[in-house]
Design a protein around this nucleic acid. Structure first.
Lengths: 160, 160
DNA sequence: CATAGTTATGTAACTGGTTACGCAAATATA
DNA sequence: TATATTTGCGTAACCAGTTACATAACTATG
């Protein structure tokens, strides 16, 4: 059966992006599960952020990833429960929670590297016939950041 | 603050796809809400499917859109509750539910056309500097359909 | 033609995001 | 310095998908 979303062209793109990202997400979860790994999707982002920055707050992470802060809170709390992350209260600003990887976190990260490397290599393979993809999706992200979908549609509607 | 996901290159793509598709999804919902429209994301897909095919079953829709069947069931049930869709039991196969748009459904669809047209036009604008995007994402979808992310990573792991 | 397997659909539980709201701490201002 | 505003973060409720499981109806086969 023909793929209706693809046939829709411009009108199908949003749903295709969701469909593709869901497929990758669930497949990643499935991989972790079948490998018996104690990690969830996007923990890798937090691991890498803290590997590169040593210490960060929730807000800084939410800024760097451009995720809502509750999303970060949820991930971080799970990682704390597994003792991959520790935190202390910033003494200059008591609202802030300063997060960093524990020794256990650093050690566990070593086990994950092989999955990250092969994962990146898979993405590279997926993109090999799509050499402009990364560049072009970056441009789309930039546009959406400047003026979101709703604003753009409203602008068109009001011009009529 | 620099975008960490973009800096991650291959390792950030999956999360960027989700981030982008979520941004579009929530912005679409926001648009519908602020316009007072009685419609949810992806209802448009069902409307269009039934506009083009008159009658379809759950499984046919799930096939055409490549969504899981429970996803279709949920959407269709909501649209039935609003009387945009009616159904009858297939007399040759009593398991099947034959779905079609009601008169109310067709009428309501007319109100939506202007949003669909402008939405498509917005997507066109978003893609104007990304002329290869649609073609290249199609190739990525094809690859994932042939061998999913998990399978690809496992293959690489086992080769080591 | 009885029964084993397959298919269509429904339902439950889960997931990983979001928005909305609240509060305490910090900052700006009158 | 009292008060208004902003900021950091936590929690609740929601949302649109998924997988897993159940059931009834159809199909194929010994």
């Amino acid at each position: 059966m023909k793929d209706f979303l693809i046939a829709l062209e411009y009108e199908g793109l949003t749903s295709r992006l969701k469909r593709l990202s869901d497929a990758l997400l669930y497949s990643t979860k499935d991989l972790y599960k079948s490998e018996g790994l104690d990690i969830e999707p996007n923990w890798n982002l937090i691991f890498k952020l803290l590997r590169d920055h040593k210490e960060m707050t929730i807000t800084e992470m939410s800024d760097a990833l451009q995720f809502s802060h509750p999303a970060i809170v949820k991930i971080v709390n799970k990682m704390k429960k597994q003792s991959y992350i520790a935190s202390y209260c910033d003494k200059d600003d008591k609202r802030k929670q300063v997060l960093s990887l524990t020794k256990k976190g650093y050690q566990y990260m070593k086990n994950l590297e092989v999955y990250w490397q092969n994962g990146a290599s898979v993405v590279e393979d997926l993109l090999v016939d799509s050499p402009n993809f990364l560049e072009e999706i970056t441009r789309i992200e930039e546009k959406i950041n400047q003026l979101n979908y709703k604003q753009r549609v409203l602008l068109k509607l009001n011009k009529e």
